[in-house]
Amino acid sequence: MQMQKLAGNDVLLDVRDLETHFYGEESVTRALGGISFQVRSGETLGVVGESGCGKSVTALSILRLLPKLTARTVGGEIRFHGRDLLKLSPREMRQIRGNRIAMIFQEPMTSLNPVYTVGHQIAEAVQIHTKASRSDAMAKAREMLRLVRIADPERRVNNYPHEMSGGMRQRAMIAMALACSPELLIADEPTTALDVTIQAQILRLIVDLKEHTGTAVMFITHDLGVVAETCQRVIVMYAGRIAEQASVTDLFARPAHPYTQGLMRSVPDRRHGRQRRLPEIPGIVPSLREPIVGCSFAPRCPFAIGICREKTPTLRDIGPGHAAACFRAEEVMGG
């Protein structure tokens, strides 16, 4: 779509009008209200937004890992190498998951099995998707641990998850995710639970590995600082929709959606002075249970005019590789 014409490299993942609903006892939550974006091979795409904006639901929808009883993707397409993931059989999906698209989570402890050694789990992941022998798979596990810069991989390969620190577990998770050389790695808040110095190490590791392996990364985070340091392109999400999409430099230099702008301004920044009141975004995130008329950000938006409360803005190009879902994007960007 918008991005395609300027992308020299090929589109790996093409999400179109993705809609996911959650079903409660008496209500339907429209978690994703039709989002479209692409991930190109080898790039790092950041997905930012605050809690409840749908960024994690996007990841789970792509991998079809939504809770079966309460959630369903009701519309759209997720094309991976041209094949719609939503139309695959569970068996075909399993072959893509972990093998060609891998995912790492915020809390590695929940996704590592506590009763097996880390080496065993990485080897198992390798064996599921390749025909490697047991010893080859273990050798691969050791190699992966070395790759993610775990000190003394020969010994660590026999460690259980609880014998490792949080940072090391996240490294092990990354090792496991990358063991089958996936084309796309979805990282959902991978450093949120970690300390800053460890976060810096893990971010560096992800960036280096991406360059080394050529894996595309979809990096989901709430932290604009993390986005600035790791991503090439960014999607900003608000209330289940994409508010803005831009290259990372454009986004930070010329935010075109009032929400992006508000978000950036509310982060404390020494360049704007200490001890002063931070510009806040007034109000709260709308409930996604009731249908929203007009722009979902309008009630909190300083730029909102009549049309914003009547029509829902769609994502439109406002510059090369820069799109925003705002009627007044040009004015927002200008000042």
């Binding site: 809690s51 409840g52 994690s56 639901v57 995130v285």
Partner: peptide, 12 residues
């Protein structure tokens, strides 16, 4: 998951 907690919170 953030979405679920957010919707549970807005509910009552």
């Amino acid at each position: 998951m953030s979405l679920l907690s957010a919707s549970a919170e807005a509910a009552p």
